[in-house]
């Protein structure tokens, strides 16, 4: 009897101690998962849990994205998850995405999982034409994407039509040529066959090495208005800030590299970029909303931090990660040779 009371008591106290939670859905580039998130959790608590679940250590490139009134926003680390302007119905949904891009994918993306998530995200942007990619580069990229998915080309397995269901090229590229799907498949397969021996990780890295050389890779564009009221585009990326004409997102009219900017600030909708060089004029512009200004400033701070960090020695954590990745690569290569 006494035992029964004790066990009932401990059950009650356990029940009382259970913190209040809500359900969060996280959508990554290739998976969806749900977590019970405590009411008091801050953005960082949830983000760390997602990274731990994915086994991702190069966390600094990523963020949890949500959309509010057609504007994208990122979860802030020090603010409570529910303190954000997120729809309050459960599950509260976030997209786990790369927020910042490396300057050099080969040097900076160490873990296979990091490379894979970048590969999937950049491939989607290219196929959806968010990034302009010339036709010849699109074909070469498609051939690496096929190598990553199908492994080495084997004509006895990869028969005519094996790519029929795959989305491999941007529609714009397909429309530029009078070629049947079979002709595209033939062309892509000819290059795919050239990549024999490349592992999935290597093929994905080759893909990223090509993609990072396209002009729009890693650039976040924002519609702005200069002091004269002219509409322009502001681009924020790993190297700095860029100003574009509306009709040309490829070549900036002006650029401000991060190491030539003294200060960036905004008050209400007005944004100010103060160059380091005093002779260069201060650049002022207006964005569409205060919410957009917040996003621009967040991206500026994050990209600037990474820009400075890249120019210093690697942290112990990164050194260790790189050493592990090298060992792992060497081990895989040995195994392949043995086979």
């Amino acid at each position: 009897m006494a035992e029964a009371i004790t066990s009932r008591m401990s059950f009650t106290s356990l029940k009382r101690k259970q913190p209040k939670t809500f359900t969060v859905r996280i959508i990554t580039m290739d998976a969806e998962m749900e977590f019970n998130c405590e009411m008091k959790w801050k953005g960082k608590d949830l983000f760390d849990l997602v990274c731990r679940t994915l086994g991702l250590r190069e966390t600094w490139f990523f963020g949890l994205q949500y959309t509010i009134k057609d504007t994208i926003a990122w979860l802030r680390w020090i603010k409570k998850v529910l303190g954000h302007d997120v729809p309050k119905e459960e599950p509260v949904t976030f997209h786990f995405l790369a927020k910042f891009y490396p300057e050099n994918v080969e040097e900076e993306l160490v873990q296979d999982i990091t490379q894979h998530l970048f590969f999937l995200q950049v491939k989607k942007q290219i196929l959806e034409e968010k990034i302009y990619c010339p036709p010849e580069a699109s074909v070469l990229l498609a051939s690496y994407a096929v190598q990553a998915k199908y492994g080495d080309y084997d004509p006895s397995v990869h028969k005519r039509g094996f790519l029929a269901e795959e989305e491999l090229l941007p529609k714009r590229v397909i429309n530029l040529y009078q070629m049947t799907p079979e002709m595209w498949e033939e062309r892509i397969t000819a290059w795919y066959a050239e990549h024999r021996g490349r592992t999935r990780d290597e093929a994905e890295m080759e893909y990223l090495k090509i993609a990072q050389d396209t002009e729009m890779y890693g650039v976040n564009y924002f519609l702005i208005r200069n002091k004269k009221g002219t509409e322009l585009l502001l681009g924020v990326d790993a190297l700095g800030l860029h100003i574009y004409d509306l009709e040309n997102r490829l070549t900036p009219k002006t650029s401000f590299p991060w190491n030539e900017i003294r200060n960036i600030s905004y008050s209400d909708k007005e944004f100010t970029i103060k160059p380091l060089e005093k002779k260069i004029d201060v650049f002022k512009f207006n964005s569409s909303k205060l919410r957009v200004n917040k996003l621009i400033l967040q991206l500026c701070i994050g990209n600037h931090d990474l820009f400075m960090r890249r120019r210093k020695a690697d942290s112990l954590e990164v050194q260790q990660m790189k050493a592990q990745a090298r060992e792992e690569k060497a081990r895989k290569q040995m195994e392949r040779q043995r086979l």
């Binding site: 010339p134 036709p135 010849e136 580069a137 074909v139 070469l140 429309n175 530029l176 040529y177 009078q178 070629m179 002709m183 062309r187 290059w191 050239e194 090495k209 090509i210 050389d213």
Partner: peptide, 27 residues
């Protein structure tokens, strides 16, 4: 700064030429 697509220039040139005969006039 290395040229864009530096290690892939040869492959890209070959693909460009191979696509050329099929280009739409508007393209």
């Amino acid at each position: 700064q290395p040229a864009k697509f530096a290690p892939y220039q040869k492959a890209l040139r070959e693909i460009r030429y191979s696509l050329l005969p099929f280009a739409n006039e508007s393209g």
